[in-house]
Design a protein around this nucleic acid. Structure first.
Length: 481
RNA sequence: GGCGACGUGGCCAAGUGGUUAAGGCGGAGCUCUGCAAAAGCUCUAUUCGGCGGUUCGAAUCCGCCCGUCGCCUCCA
């Protein structure tokens, strides 16, 4: 597999540091507000990376943090009159709900800044001892000039940043770009004890502490949004490599392009955000995933309702391809099978194997796409081509179940569940027998060519969210999404 | 000012030196069907922002220009 690395700015062959094991650290959220679709884009993308590596047989250690203490959390908690801890708890829960509904697999560890204090303090102490950091009136700052490679990730130099930077808070700092490892406490703020007095960790140090603690001094893949490249990840490298002395801190830096919201009337009141909850109230999670994955992860994507809607229709196409082939001939075969005691399906399978869809070539093209820096748009194209061929074979009444299995498997690597709407919620199931009754009555009406009444039943049911589809083998129905 | 992206059909979006420029949505026609839906087939970019250059050959490399955007401040 080839992956693009932000640090070296090139695509390189991916190879785990240690055998079969791949360590992944993805920067998590600061839980002070609801999870939005920009987060969703990023975590869906890393979810696909993880699923694909697992599919390739790697053993994944996936760590994702929560920054559960920072300025915004404090401000927000004060606004709402609750503790920072409680605020974080609320939005962490919201995050998990959002990710679960998007079918994003859970990480192996979710460390939080506030419970990693010992490691954080240990690292800061060491950085001070090594001359990388200095205490300054309650704060501890990282000395940027001590690191000759500072700026290597974001491809800038200290000088170039100084020219245009709005760094003004130089009071406690020896250099405008020095950044806080530890912030001395202010009145009314939660704080933790440290050798430098009460305070709290700076933004970047927690990730260093957690990544090193859970994954070691050098990790395979570190990811996040492109907005984290500077300063967050830049500072993380400086701290981590300063602390451990081991380089590189990260073998492959991966950054996803950011989600944009059109300048339109997306969200008048709430800034310019669409929360995952809002998006999922109108769309399936598969549609969102399909949308996110239909452009390359390093490109920006502009979100709009109409785009999700077209993704939803595309999703429906895949779902339809997975619907079982149901024809008169099949039921006749089933009848024959039981009547003669012969396992007809064996012959069907052999026929499918020899004359059917070449699922292997689809899978090969699919993996080739993902092998090339996670080219999900191309992988999706392969899936749609497979779906079309399945439909074509269904039309010819050839067994397609193994091709459907293949489609399901490949879609699963992209985290698409492709649930048929046939699997309706339980509260609807009690309506089933009535719907079945109506359908069978309608079938009789149709044999009597009472089209107007038959169509009326279909229309009325449609109004109630039930879709009827007639075919030569009978009528199928399902609930709308 | 620095660093970096991007501009491909009506919309979204792959492709980055050489067969017919993927795929999805939308649109048109046909087939199937009582109708509808679903599905299939065909069509929907002689052309890849513009102008030059390199090359036997470029959407793909180089230069310039036009346009859009991101980061340099909290952010996935």
């Amino acid at each position: 597999m080839i992956l693009y690395d932000t640090l070296t700015a090139q695509k390189r062959e991916f190879k785990p540091i240690l055998g079969n094991r791949v360590n992944i650290y993805v920067c998590g959220i600061t839980p002070y507000a609801e999870t939005h679709i920009g987060h969703a884009l990023s975590y869906v993308m890393f979810d696909v990376l993880r699923r694909y590596l697992e599919f390739q047989g790697y053993e994944i250690q996936f760590v994702q943090n929560f920054t559960d203490i920072d300025d915004k959390i404090i401000a927000r908690a004060n606004e709402q009159g609750i503790s920072t801890k409680e605020l974080a708890r609320i939005y962490i829960e919201d995050y998990f709900e959002a990710m679960d509904s998007l079918n994003v697999k859970r990480a192996d560890h979710y460390p939080m800044a506030t419970i990693e204090m010992p490691k954080i303090i240990e690292i800061i102490s060491s950085l001070i001892d090594q001359g990388y950091a200095y205490p300054s009136s309650g704060d501890v700052n990282f000395r940027v000039t001590k690191d000759p490679e500072y700026g290597k990730l974001s491809h800038r130099t200290i000088d170039s940043m100084l020219e245009w930077a709005n760094e003004e808070l130089t009071e406690n700092k020896d250099h405008p770009l020095d950044f806080a490892l530890w912030k001395g406490t202010k009145p009314g703020e939660p704080s933790w004890d440290s050798p430098w007095g009460a305070g709290r960790p700076g933004w970047h140090i927690e990730c260093t502490a957690m990544a090193i603690r859970y994954l070691g001094n050098t990790i395979d893949i570190h990811g996040g949004g492109q907005d984290l490249i500077f300063p967050h990840h830049e500072n993380e490298i400086a701290q981590s490599e300063g602390y451990t002395g081991d380089k590189p801190f990260v073998v492959t830096w991966m950054h996803n392009g950011l989600l944009h919201l059109g300048n339109d009337k997306m969200s008048k009141s709430l800034g310019n955000l669409v929360t995952v909850k809002e998006a999922l109230s109108n769309h399936t999670s598969d549609a969102l995933r399909l949308l996110f994955l239909s452009s390359h992860y390093r490109s920006p994507l502009t979100y709009s309702e109409s785009l999700v809607e077209s993704s939803d229709r595309a999703r429906q196409r895949l779902v339809n391809a997975l619907k079982p082939r149901q024809t008169e001939i099949e039921s006749e075969l089933d009848g024959l099978k039981t009547a003669l005691g012969v396992d007809v399906s064996t012959y069907q399978d052999r026929f499918e194997e020899e004359f059917g869809i070449d699922t292997q070539s689809y899978q090969l093209r699919f993996t080739a796409a993902l092998d090339d820096d996670l080219n999900t748009p191309q992988a999706i194209a392969v899936i749609f081509e497979l779906a079309r061929e399945i439909n074509r074979y269904k039309g010819m009444d050839v067994e397609v179940s193994s091709a459907q299995d293949c489609l399901r498997k490949l879609a699963g690597i992209l985290g698409l569940s492709l649930d048929s709407t046939m699997s309706e919620p339980s509260n609807k199931s009690e309506a089933n027998e009535f719907i079945n009754l109506l359908v069978s009555i309608r079938t009789e009406l149709r044999t009597e060519k009472n089209w107007s009444l038959a169509d009326k039943i279909r229309d009325e049911l449609d109004g109630m969210g039930v879709i009827l589809e007639d075919s030569s083998s009978g009528t199928q129905w399902e609930f709308k999404d």
